[in-house]
Design a protein around this nucleic acid. Structure first.
Lengths: 215, 215
DNA sequence: TGATATGTGTACCATTCAGTAAATAATACG
DNA sequence: CGTATTATTTACTGAATGGTACACATATCA
């Protein structure tokens, strides 16, 4: 019923990586790999554009296995989003740890460029492409994605406000406006990537955007 | 079979607005109004997120009437996109006529802000929300939308190159980069609008973006 | 060897999808 | 009037949607 096969650290020998082996028939597929496959599909085709048949065929499993492991389509999508946030979209949170506001913005933009210009991934950003416009059936997923984008903006704004207090951002600057601007640029680059923009082209968009940074 | 009821200018009296009245049962709904309704639905829910039932119910007509008047779902969408381009999204082309590169960029951004901040419309941009991520069934529509966004970028680049030749844009500036930057900002604002950003907030994003403009 | 617990495979469910056949209704023209 | 033409209505099609019942397979534990 649960995802994880609950890897428990029992300090027996040196290599205590294996799970304690639960009873019942063992799962015949790799959950983590299946999640990765689902992520790439949702990333490319969006939540509603990806059917259960698309998913099970790509994962190489049957419908009931998917439901047993991930709940349903919506729960699977949420798990994919979580994985995305701690994987490919990691820079959205790690960038906040940079020492100055400018470096935070630069790291955020550079991270987006790296992600969006990477040809080993679908072009775009799951947070933007996942459920931007969809039917009313998926309104909740849609709103959640919007809320997560807004939350990223809020974190950025608070980071910039802190920077202002710390003195590395002019008092004349507006943290909320700067946060929204960085969000606009990175999300705009996500749309550009979907139109076929290359990594170099996106990087130059980022460089231009940083020209607007308050001095 | 055709859309228009073919308003022909026959200079009989002063007011020659009415159509010559074709034979057959007259259409019971206003084609233009139906297109407007369809546009708002596609705008809000995207191409795949809008079902024929959504459309016919909102238009107040039956399925066969829709097919007789507009062909099919895809053709209807293309007609909606055309209407959008000459209506709400007009600024994307009219801005090019501004006298200087800077004024073109400002007009483009201001036009986007006005559109995206207008609460009488769905939040966002049809060119971005219409078919950003979708199933493979709609790949053609998706590619067409990407091509139209790219085309807008090309027009902008050529306009900036002309400006450079005319001397109102520094020779050190890069027209292609500037065009892509303006596109990134406006499309990013479209995503922000979908997350709930207000017109005032978007306007400040636009002001910040113009700070990056070459002097 | 059971008993229990879990996963897989097949085959199905009701609903919705885009699209259409055919009968009927409303107009123009002769 | 009758004929031709076009639009509306109802009812339908086959395929795809998300989700599930149930029999069977494979594991642990006693």
């Amino acid at each position: 019923m649960d995802i994880s096969t609950s890897t428990i650290n029992l300090p027996k020998g040196m290599k205590s990586e294996k799970t304690p082996a639960a009873p019942g028939r063992p799962r015949a597929f790799d959950v983590d790999q299946a999640l990765e496959t689902a992520m790439n599909l949702f990333w490319k085709q969006g939540y509603e554009g990806t059917s259960l048949t698309d998913l099970t065929e790509a994962m190489g499993i049957n419908r009931p296995s998917l439901y047993a492991a991930f709940g349903n389509k919506e729960e699977l999508f949420r798990k994919v989003v979580e994985r995305y946030g701690s994987g490919p979209g990691r820079h959205a949170t790690t960038s906040l740890a940079e020492p100055t506001a400018r470096q935070v913005a630069e790291a955020m933009i550079r991270g987006s460029v790296n992600l969006l210009g990477d040809k080993s991934h679908p072009r775009g950003c799951l947070m933007v492409h996942g459920a931007l416009a969809c039917s009313e059936d998926s309104a909740e997923v849609q709103q959640d994605m919007a809320a997560m984008r807004s939350s990223a903006e809020t974190q950025l704004r608070e980071r910039f406000a802190r920077a202002q207090a710390e003195g590395d951002l002019p008092v004349t600057a507006n943290p909320a406006d700067l946060a929204r601007f960085v969000q606009a640029v990175t999300q705009g680059m996500a749309v550009l990537a979907a139109s076929g923009a290359t990594g170099e082209e996106l990087a130059r968009v980022g460089d231009l955007a940083m020209q607007a940074w308050p001095k």
